[in-house]
Design a protein around this nucleic acid. Sequence first.
RNA 1: GGGCCCUUAGCUCAGUUGGUUAGAGCGCUACCUUGACACGGUAGAGGUCGCAGAUUCGAGUUCUGCAGGGCCCACCA
Length: 883
Amino acid sequence: MLLEKAYEPQKFEPHWAQWWIESGLYRPERHPGRAGVFSIVIPPPNVTGSLHIGHMLEHTVMDVAVRWHRMKGETTLWVPGTDHAGIATQMVVERELTAQGLNRRQLGREEFERRVWQWKEEYGGRINNQIRREGASVDWSRERFTMDPGLSRAVREAFVRLWDKGLIYRGEYMVNWCPSCQTAISDVETIHESEPGRLWHIRYAVKDSDESLVVATTRPETMLGDTALAVNPDDPRYQHLHGKTAVLPILDREIRIIADTMVDPEFGTGVVKITPAHDPNDFEAGRRHSLPSVKVIDEDARMTAAAGPYAGLDRFEARKRIVAALEASSELVKTEPYIVNLSKCSRSRTIIEPLVSMQWFMRMRTLADQAVEAVRSGRIRFVPDDREVVFFQWMENIRDWCISRQLWWGHRIPAWHCRHCGKTTVAREAPSTCPHCQSTEVEQETDVLDTWFSSGLWPFSTLGWPEETEDLKTYYPNTLLITGFDILFFWVSRMMMLGIEMTGDVPFREVHLHGLVRDAEKQKISKTKGNTIDPLVMMDKYGTDACRIGLLISASAGADIALKDDRLEASRAFANKLWNASRLLFLNLERSKVVSWTSAPFPHDYFEDSWIYGRLNHAATTVNAALASHRYHEAAQTLWNFVWHEFCDWYLEVKKLRFREDSGQDTHWTAALTIYESMLRLLHPFMPFITEELWQRLIHALPGDRQFPVSISLECFPAGTAEATPATLFLVFQQAVTAARELRADNKLDSKSTLPAAIYLHGSLFKEEDLGILKNLTRLDIYQHPGAISDRSGLIRSTPDFDLQIQAAAPSANGTAGVESVARVSKEIATLARNIENSKRQLADPAFLSRAPEKVVVGLRTKLAEYEVQLKKNKDLLEGLDR
RNA sequence: GGGCCCUUAGCUCAGUUGGUUAGAGCGCUACCUUGACACGGUAGAGGUCGCAGAUUCGAGUUCUGCAGGGCCCACCA
């Protein structure tokens, strides 16, 4: 039963993590399958380990929320995490490792990541690029998304339904093309960066005229694909040129001059070149004016044959040469520095090439409106809710979503093209013949779906959708989604749109968006910066529980966290403090002869018991309220204060003296163990490992007939009562202890010797045994008197409730006797005088008296009276000190 | 260009409908190696809550403007 001298997380955490899984309390699986009350779908962080510190925060918040709900006896399911390719790959690797009896911890981070990359290379990008570049044959029949057949089925079902409703269409449109990833990507997968660049002004001659037009561009290489010049129809400078023809420099191709309102006459020269194949705006303009489209850049970002002399060159090389050529022919009018906004691929950071290609799209307008409505009507709530504004803004400006990807890894689009008649069939299952022409030459579309398409189905596909399963009925809509705000557009909004469309109900009721974890210098954590924090290393160093409560206490309402070591060190100290408090209790318990612990009514025999009982209830009430409104930091902070500064600093300090006097008394143990056990339960969601260890080892082992569930996580969570337990005498006791310590510190009294003292109590006297405790804690031989102090010799400390007098002169060796006390008392007098002045001024103000609520006025009057008593006492004191 | 957030002790941050003397952790100073714990204890120093106004009996808290910092969105060549 004896506890080790210090808490050793490494010793207990892996053990409990393993045990939770084996006992079925946790399922470290991506899919809850038959979800039940105990279906916690994320693993405790140190089982498989979160790859990034951000995941650890997310896992921790989820785990706290789940454990809390479970302890409250509520049946809840959470959306566990994403299934996008990166995570999916990790999961596959982890699963393979598990099969080999290995885990991430044993393997180490580097080896683990090496394997992930190896796996990705093997199954992902390389194959994709080989197909594109080398035309390598590939076995398309191989199952590409091996993660979950159920999800594949859900994807096909959703796709077909959307297609049937006309919400999915296929066509040739302008898309963001990443030349490096060799695939189209959606708008949200691009990032915008401003970089210093150039604006080149190029002269285009007007055919059969001496005139010429000057056009400004940031991308001269695209001019080879120009099929028109555009001016604003109302621009008086150019009205005579409408419908005329210009000559494209270098290629000498003739292009039209058109009028279009898209052109801003104020910007640049008021003339715009139109390149329908390589610019989204121009693409639209091209459609409006039925312009031809000339593709001069290909999927590899090289110039095509249409680029004439520049064919085969890289786009940037071509740009250089074209600028040089224009300069040589003096068609380059001028070059000026310019800040250009570049679209880049968020994955590869390659500059996006807008290209026209055949892709699949999802119509977003109605889906977005439905999602917006769900938030406006309160069916989905954001925490913190200021994110709603950003969400609405994004949803209102949403454009159709390009959902097809030219990748190998992913869910293949359930569409079949007929080689014979060229028609396309969308179906749940592969058709054996073309429904249009009965040809057997049908081939499935090789494009796959954006990974966020399947992710968007997650909240219900995991519950067995499209089957009307029991799980779906019970757990849909999910209660709560916890994730980072960076993923709001990618994932959260897609789940909302697809969830509402597919099931007719919202996917979840609440979305808790936490902030980013940053390093100690508030830098974003990234691999390239080398400031990554490996949660496994962190957990080994400080312990999982310490990391959890450290993260939680710093994580407030969606704000970013600057993760500093000192916070984690403090958290480790906190875990150790809890451990040692337990050690104190149980060392004493061993020495005593307590035979049985019952959950009898809480005894109020001693004043510290009544006091701590009130404090515990207060803490429990606060924690429940904080958790209910997702203020995890407040809950953690409350518990920290209760455990350390109330339970340890006061309750145990008093109780251990009681034990020394009288450790056999059951009432002490009934009280102390009741508080302690409730405290462990309160703490469990936040620090599951240490509380499980202590609960199993200590509470379980208590003598008595009480039956316990197998895990503390199956116990109930203390609710807290509103019941007020007045403990005024204990508060006086605390003040007396503090007053004595202040006197000793101020006057540099010998800390070891016991000094004679007296306490004049204005209220009821301490019980003899309580006075004993006071004597012991203060090392004063105190006599207590009812009534007021008369003799003002010695050292005195006064409060409204008592005067404490130590009958010793301050050591006067260096002639600075009582200097500290004089300073303290003088300072206090100054503060009191200021307060009295302020209070009097307010109370004399008729406006205040008539407008302020009665409660505030009465409160202020009471305060004023106290200040005045205090002031009088302190003035007397100062007089005595001066002598 | 549009929008959102932040500015409180040396550092990192709390502060829930406006209420009387603004808090925590770390750091700092002094003392204490007391039989749970030095990953500890006790006492203390340290803030005119970014600036300027407004509303109010009363503003760290509400409103407006300004300054500084951060983030997101955006097809102006």
